[in-house]
């Protein structure tokens, strides 16, 4: 069987049920940001979420990744309930089963491209230069392995970030405005790279963006405004 070959897992890559998240504002008022009754992403599925700034895209991504805790509700990644886990186990889940691509790349400036990709493995399977190099080869940057981020173009930096997210062969790839800091041509390439890589690894892909060009690359686009049942007013708590 090929290394890149995949088999469809009947377990959904992502399940969200009755998710509620609110924040306390400066005046002490609690404001609902997310109220999502149900959302599911099957294994290997690729979806985009459309949403303007301030609608809670990043908050949703952070909750799925276990970085933020919801007020209530159920979130499961690859069949594992994120919301029921301790912080340490959420860290572990994130390290082993989730690949996260950020708008601002979020590469460590003191580390080379290869070392940044190794970070994607370090907290899960363990830092492994061979696997990291394979991930860099997948995004076409093997010859830039020893370059520092500042020695790479913005497009190359985002490809390193993609390689880092893919390095641990996650079951779910989250990409939050992955083309936000790129020009249109580079943005298209990154989205194609993400889609191709997710397909090759059998990973589910969830991309959050407000960029029509990004959204047009996906067959299925979910409008966060429709998915999110938040009342359009602030509530006193």
């Amino acid at each position: 069987m090929s290394d890149e070959a995949t088999t469809m897992d009947p377990t959904p890559a992502l399940t969200i049920r009755d998710l509620v998240k609110s924040f306390t504002g400066p005046s002490g008022q609690r404001t609902d940001v997310l109220r999502i009754p149900f959302f599911q992403l099957e294994a290997g599925q690729q979806r985009a979420i459309r949403g303007e700034s301030g609608l809670g895209k990043t908050t949703l991504m952070h909750i799925i990744a276990g970085i933020l805790e919801p007020d209530s509700g159920f979130v499961a990644v690859g069949g594992t309930e994120v919301t029921g886990l301790s912080e340490a186990r959420r860290d572990r889940l994130r390290a082993e089963r989730i690949g996260y691509v950020f708008q601002t790349f979020n590469l460590l400036q003191g580390l080379s491209a290869l070392e940044n990709v190794m970070l994607g493995l370090a907290f899960g399977k363990g830092a492994d230069a061979g696997s990291a190099m394979a991930a860099l080869e997948r995004v076409g940057l093997a010859d830039r392995a020893q370059h520092l981020p500042r020695q790479l173009s913005t497009g190359q930096q985002q490809r390193v970030a993609v390689a880092r997210a893919l390095a641990n062969r996650p079951c779910l790839i989250l990409a939050d405005e992955p083309t936000g800091n790129l020009d249109a041509a580079r943005g298209r390439k990154i989205i194609q790279l993400l889609r191709d890589s997710a397909t090759a690894l059998g990973s589910a892909l969830l991309v959050a963006s407000h960029d029509p060009e990004v959204l047009s690359a996906f067959d299925q686009v979910i409008d966060l405004a429709e998915l999110n049942q938040v009342e359009p007013r602030e509530e006193e708590v």
């Binding site: 990744a65 970085i67 912080e87 340490a88 860290d91 572990r92 994130r94 390290a95 082993e96 996260y100 950020f102 979020n106 590469l107 460590l108 400036q109 003191g110 970070l119 994607g120 370090a122 907290f123 899960g124 880092r164």
Partner: peptide, 16 residues
Amino acid sequence: KRDLAILRALGAHRGF
């Protein structure tokens, strides 16, 4: 601070 946050986002636990 941002680097440390990135490490946490990649799965590093607080002890790390």
